[in-house]
Nucleic acid binder design. Structure first.
Length: 525
RNA sequence: GUCUCCUUCGUCUAGCGGUUAGGACAUCGCCCUCUCACGGCGGUAACAGGGGUUCGAGUCCCCUAGGAGACGCCA
């Protein structure tokens, strides 16, 4: 018999992360067994079921790449069929009309609770004759649940689970307004859809006992159940909104890749030996519901992050650029223009250096912004506030001296202003403070040594203006200059951040003119 | 309150009667290094407690404790 499974979310506005895992497990099981994965929207609660809510679920499933077979089934549309089944059960004596009011039921529950019993319906109308029915009260239809013996369910993940039938009460099948309840609808739909395996959250385990008898009363085969444990929040309680993000869509917005989320979710409650990173084709090949662990798992954002970082690193630069384009434009705050497009090209070149440092697409976009527009330095800048402005400026001046002599095609006016600046600061003539230490070196000396190094090198070897500090660090060390101290201010000036990709790479991509411009801008800020 | 389920490092888990209890994330240290990452190496860290069964128990059984879920004319 071929496997048929389904994912049956109720449209509450978004796809819950726990629902996403349930969908994923169903999908994996179907794909592994060569079976069918169906989708059913449980939209019988008319108040909550909006088209937006339904679309949100479709969107998230598509984003995750959990493709379903056939058209989705909308449960509400099948209400007449559900009612038909309920009425047949009444005719067959397996269900009956109940005239209790909601208030009476409330009292009943309170009384049961007070006497130490479970708060349930006491079957008041179960054996009452039709003639006892009060006038003007529209009844509900209740299922006659067995009152003796026990129900045994052989659950694929939970194992054999038993329940004494006295725990069961007569559940409502049809409401007073004639609409079916969830308990009826699921059973009828699952049967009509030919579902062979019901893989769903643990919270439905007790429902399974009641549903079991409904199947039996209808003369239908009971599907196999697999009740997978719920996902908990960090505090060990069922994951809910108060724990923060619980919608798949939210994770998308936070810059997570679908493969990262899937990889994370598949490992929550299931494992294949020591394999942590696995593709979906691996998962399809390896997955088995029988191996799902019975204990619930806590959601751990840190691990998701690490997986996401992994998949970002593994992604092609083209794809990443595509993914962050919108985010970049949002941060740019101006309409897309030539400068933006130019920045995009720089990002494409620098992506290798950017992506290894990002845990989310948002971080990636944020860290790439300096390729699009120059950082701004305001009074709030922590480094200025810390009183390092002067010291940094001195380092930057020296840095300019390092790269200036290597200039080949340098804008005349800019060169002029650099010379001017250095002269004013006496950079070439006095002892400088770099990185908080005194250096008995001068820009002129540095230039000289750099030039000497230049000569030692084969002609052709110098490919760009940053060659000296990168290729001849010994020169700097020889002068007692720490390259780190020299370059950190440059990093701030060029990127506006304390961390960035390799600076020589950044400089090469930005180009000499832009580098000088940004350094000058920092100094003059 | 009643019923059901759960319990291996902080977290996710491997283990399916005999293991120095393994891996991953997190954390700490070292290396690499212009920063931060990446990468490499290493460390700290767990069988909830108590009884059985057995030559032998993380693995099987029972009890206790703790946690969670379910008890709607919601799904």
């Amino acid at each position: 018999m071929s496997v048929v499974v389904r994912f049956a979310p109720s449209p509450t506005g978004f796809l819950h992360i726990g629902g996403a895992r349930t969908a994923l497990f169903n999908w994996l099981f179907a794909r592994h067994t060569g079976g069918t994965f169906l989708l059913r929207i449980e939209d019988t609660d008319r108040k909550r079921s909006t088209t937006e809510a339904i679309d949100a679920i479709f969107e998230s499933l598509k984003w995750l790449g959990l493709d379903w077979d056939d058209e989705p089934v909308f449960q509400f549309a099948r209400a007449p069929r559900h009612a038909e089944v309920a009425n047949n059960l009444v005719k067959a004596g397996r269900a009956y009309y109940c005239y209790c009011s909601p208030e009476e039921l409330e009292e009943m529950r309170a009384a049961a609770l007070a006497s130490g019993k479970p708060p349930r319906y006491n079957g008041y109308w179960r054996d009452k004759p039709e003639s006892a029915a009060p006038d003007g009260v529209v009844p509900v239809v209740r299922f006659k649940a067995p009152q003796e013996g026990k129900t045994v369910i052989d659950d694929i993940t939970q194992g054999t689970v038993e329940l004494n039938n006295e725990q069961l009460d007569d559940m409502i099948l049809l409401r007073a307004d004639g609409t079916p309840t969830y308990m009826l609808s699921v059973v009828v739909d699952d049967h009509d859809m030919g579902i062979t395996h019901i893989i769903r959250g643990d919270d439905h385990l007790t429902n399974a006992f009641r549903q079991y008898h409904l199947y039996k009363a209808c003369g239908w085969d009971v599907p196999r159940f697999a009740h997978i444990p719920l996902i908990y929040g960090p505090d060990g309680a069922k994951l809910s909104k108060r724990h923060g993000a619980v919608g798949a869509e939210q994770y998308r917005k936070m810059g997570f890749l679908p493969e990262a989320l899937k990889n994370y979710l598949v490992r929550l409650g299931w494992a294949h030996g020591d394999d942590e990173i696995m593709s979906m084709s691996d998962a399809v090949e390896w997955f088995d519901v029988a191996n799902v662990v019975r204990s619930p798992a806590r959601f751990d954002t840190a691990k998701l992050m690490s997986l996401n970082a992994h998949y970002i690193r593994e992604s092609s630069n083209e794809r990443l650029l595509q993914e962050i384009r919108e985010m970049l434009l949002e941060r740019y705050t101006k309409p897309q223009d030539e400068a933006f497009l130019e920045g995009l090209k720089r990002i494409a070149r620098g992506m290798d250096g950017l992506k290894v440092r990002a845990k989310t697409l948002c971080e990636l976009a944020e860290s790439a912004m300096f390729y699009i527009s120059a950082p701004t330095f305001d009074e709030e800048d922590s480094l200025q506030a810390a009183g390092k402005k002067e010291e940094f400026s001195a380092s930057l001046a020296m840095f300019l001296e390092c790269i200036e002599p290597l200039s080949e095609s340098f804008d005349g006016a800019l060169e002029e202003s650099i010379r001017d600046f250095c002269k004013k600061r006496n950079v070439s003539a006095v002892t400088e403070r770099i990185g908080g230490r005194e250096h008995r070196s001068t820009g002129a000396e540095l230039r000289l040594r750099t030039a000497q190094a230049e000569q030692r090198r084969a002609p052709g070897k110098v490919s760009d203006f940053v060659g000296a500090p990168r290729d001849e660090p010994a020169n700097f060390r020889g002068l007692g200059i720490s390259i780190g101290a020299l370059l950190q201010p440059v990093r701030i000036a060029l990127t506006g951040r304390k961390v960035s990709p390799n600076l020589f790479e950044v400089m090469t991509i930005l180009g000499k003119e832009e580098v000088v411009k940004r350094v000058m801008a920092y100094i003059n800020a």
